[in-house]
Amino acid sequence: MSEQQPPKIEFPCEDYPIKVLGDAGDELRELVIDVMERHAPGFDQTQIRVKDSRNGTYQSLTVRITATGERQLKTIHEELIASSITKMVL
C-alpha cells in the first residue's frame, strides 16, 4: 500500500486560514494580531473570526493570511504555541 501524501501548497497562497484555540480574552486576540502582523504584515484584521466555547472559557480565532512559504507558517505556529494562553494552532 502506498502512503497518501498531504496536498502540496503552492506559495504564495492567498486566503490561507490559521485557527488558534486558547484562553478566552483580549490577550489571545492581541497575541494573534501581534504574531500575524510580524509574519504576514497587512493581513485583514476585520476578517478575524472569533468563536467562544460553550462555557466561555476558551475561544477560537480564525485568521486568513497570504502564506509565503513553509518557513513562515512554521514560525507563526511556533510563536503562537509558545504562549501559555494558546492551547492549539491549526
Score class of each variant (00 low, 15 high):
residue 1 M to H: 13
residue 1 M to A: 14
residue 1 M to P: 14
residue 4 Q to V: 11
residue 5 Q to I: 10
residue 5 Q to R: 11
residue 5 Q to Y: 06
residue 6 P to L: 07
residue 9 I to G: 10
residue 9 I to V: 15
residue 9 I to Y: 08
residue 12 P to N: 04
residue 12 P to W: 00
residue 13 C to E: 08
residue 13 C to W: 00
residue 14 E to L: 10
residue 15 D to I: 12
residue 16 Y to Q: 10
residue 17 P to W: 03
residue 17 P to S: 04
residue 18 I to P: 06
residue 20 V to S: 03
residue 22 G to P: 07
residue 24 A to H: 05
residue 26 D to R: 10
residue 26 D to Q: 11
residue 28 L to I: 04
residue 30 E to D: 14
residue 30 E to K: 14
residue 31 L to P: 08
residue 31 L to I: 03
residue 31 L to Q: 11
residue 32 V to C: 03
residue 33 I to V: 15
residue 35 V to I: 04
residue 35 V to R: 01
residue 38 R to V: 12
residue 39 H to Q: 02
residue 39 H to V: 09
residue 39 H to S: 01
residue 40 A to D: 07
residue 40 A to C: 11
residue 43 F to C: 02
residue 43 F to Q: 06
residue 43 F to D: 01
residue 44 D to L: 03
residue 45 Q to F: 03
residue 46 T to N: 14
residue 47 Q to P: 00
residue 48 I to K: 10
residue 49 R to Q: 11
residue 49 R to T: 06
residue 51 K to V: 06
residue 51 K to N: 09
residue 52 D to C: 04
residue 52 D to T: 00
residue 52 D to Q: 03
residue 53 S to R: 11
residue 53 S to N: 08
residue 54 R to G: 04
residue 54 R to W: 00
residue 55 N to K: 15
residue 56 G to F: 00
residue 56 G to E: 01
residue 56 G to C: 02
residue 57 T to Y: 08
residue 57 T to P: 00
residue 58 Y to K: 08
residue 59 Q to N: 13
residue 59 Q to S: 13
residue 61 L to H: 02
residue 63 V to H: 05
residue 64 R to M: 03
residue 65 I to W: 07
residue 66 T to E: 15
residue 66 T to K: 12
residue 66 T to Y: 05
residue 68 T to Q: 13
residue 69 G to E: 02
residue 69 G to W: 09
residue 69 G to A: 11
residue 70 E to H: 14
residue 70 E to K: 14
residue 71 R to S: 15
residue 71 R to Q: 14
residue 75 T to V: 12
residue 77 H to L: 15
residue 80 L to P: 00
residue 81 I to F: 12
residue 82 A to T: 02
residue 83 S to N: 12
residue 83 S to G: 11
residue 83 S to C: 09
residue 84 S to T: 14
residue 85 I to R: 05
residue 87 K to T: 05
residue 89 V to C: 01
residue 90 L to D: 07
residue 90 L to I: 08
